[in-house]
Deep mutational scan, measured.
Amino acid sequence: DESNKPILLPNESQSFERSVQLLDQIPSYDTHKIAVLYVGEGQSNSELAILSNEHGSYRYTEFLTGLGRLIELKDCQPDKVYLGGLDVCGEDGQFTYCWHDDIMQAVFHIATLMPTKDVDKHRCDKKRHLGNDFVSIVYNDSGEDFKLGTIKGQFNFVHVIVTPLDYECNLVSLQCRKDMEGLVDTSVAKIVSDRNLPFVARQMALHANMASQVHHSRSNPTDIYPSKWIARLRHIKRLRQRICEEAAYSNPSLPLVHPPSHSKAPAQTPAEPTPGYEVGQRKRLISSVEDFTE
């Protein structure tokens, strides 16, 4: 099969070098950035008060330690540790928490760990991170309901609301924008112990962030949302095809390698009803078989 044979790379090609550099910018793992907010007593309706908090309760602090690993920003190499735009020179604080497994990295933009500057009256330095995160974990210690939209931002799609209760338990629920209701189930609340709260809140936030990324990708319907490693695979396959075309153009005697095509017509299947918005969006999480067989 010609399409699977190794090909020689061009010795000097600026377009090839640019493509390789672009490939280096696509990590081999999925990345997520999640905002974390603490809401104190009497702050449920005040964005400024929430963003001005420099610490929270003892249970909130224990919750943070379970979310991930504490890292010092100045020691991080952005090409190895995903920071979601946090500055490593102290502009966004000294520490944050991050978490990773074999296929993804997540960083938490924690408002109480970011510096509260006197010259920044409206807390814009914090909002440029927190307001651009799709998902926020809100530790609501106010005793009042927290409403979506209290923290203004164009991309605040989903809130994971943590409400501490007695007996070391917590109520965990989801809020989302109306255009996200087909992807996020907000109907079920959970009672979770303090011990298990970081794991549950983190998983709910990661799932909500993946759904938000799919939702946000609708602005470019021709580019369905893939995982990062599938995006790398697609980029490599496009690069291979372009090299083959350039080689055939410079030397017409060489065969032009095309991806294999299936001449056999697909079997006719009964027509199915058109899937609704929710089903269609969830299918976009699934990769096409052509990603692996071309």
Rank of each mutant, 00 (worst) to 15 (best):
D1T: 11
S3I: 10
K5Y: 14
K5Q: 14
P6Q: 09
I7G: 10
L9W: 10
S13N: 11
F16T: 09
E17L: 11
E17H: 09
E17K: 13
S19R: 08
V20W: 06
V20K: 12
Q21M: 11
L23N: 09
D24S: 04
Q25R: 12
Q25C: 08
Q25S: 11
I26Q: 07
P27M: 03
Y29V: 08
D30G: 05
T31A: 03
K33H: 15
V36H: 00
Y38H: 00
E41R: 08
Q43C: 02
N45M: 06
N45I: 02
L48A: 12
A49W: 01
A49I: 02
A49D: 06
Y58N: 05
R59G: 00
G66H: 03
R69Y: 14
R69G: 11
R69V: 09
L70D: 10
L70N: 07
I71M: 11
L73D: 15
G84S: 14
D87T: 04
V88P: 15
C89A: 11
C89R: 05
Q94C: 12
F95N: 03
C98P: 03
D101P: 02
D102C: 08
I103T: 15
M104C: 14
A106W: 08
V107C: 07
H109P: 02
H109V: 05
I110G: 03
A111C: 05
M114G: 03
P115V: 04
V119M: 11
V119A: 11
C124I: 13
D125Q: 15
K126L: 05
K127H: 08
K127I: 14
H129I: 14
G131L: 15
D133E: 06
D133N: 05
V135D: 00
S136Q: 04
Y139L: 00
G143A: 04
G143N: 03
E144W: 02
F146P: 01
F146Q: 01
L148H: 13
L148G: 15
T150K: 02
I151C: 08
K152H: 08
G153T: 04
F155D: 08
I161F: 01
I161T: 04
V162N: 01
T163V: 06
P164D: 00
N170V: 01
Q175R: 06
Q175T: 09
K178F: 09
M180W: 02
T186P: 05
A189R: 10
V192D: 00
P198A: 12
A201L: 01
L206Y: 05
M210I: 10
M210Y: 05
A211C: 05
S212I: 08
R218C: 10
T222E: 13
T222Q: 10
T222M: 05
D223M: 07
I224Y: 06
Y225K: 10
S227M: 14
K228T: 05
W229R: 06
I230K: 10
R232C: 06
L233A: 10
R234G: 09
H235D: 13
R240I: 05
E245C: 06
E246V: 07
E246Y: 05
E246K: 07
A247P: 11
S250N: 13
N251S: 12
S253P: 07
P255G: 12
P260K: 13
P260M: 10
A265Y: 08
A267K: 07
T269Y: 09
T269C: 11
P270H: 11
A271T: 09
P275K: 08
Y277L: 11
R282C: 10
R284V: 12
R284M: 06
I286Q: 14
S288C: 07
F292R: 14
F292Y: 12
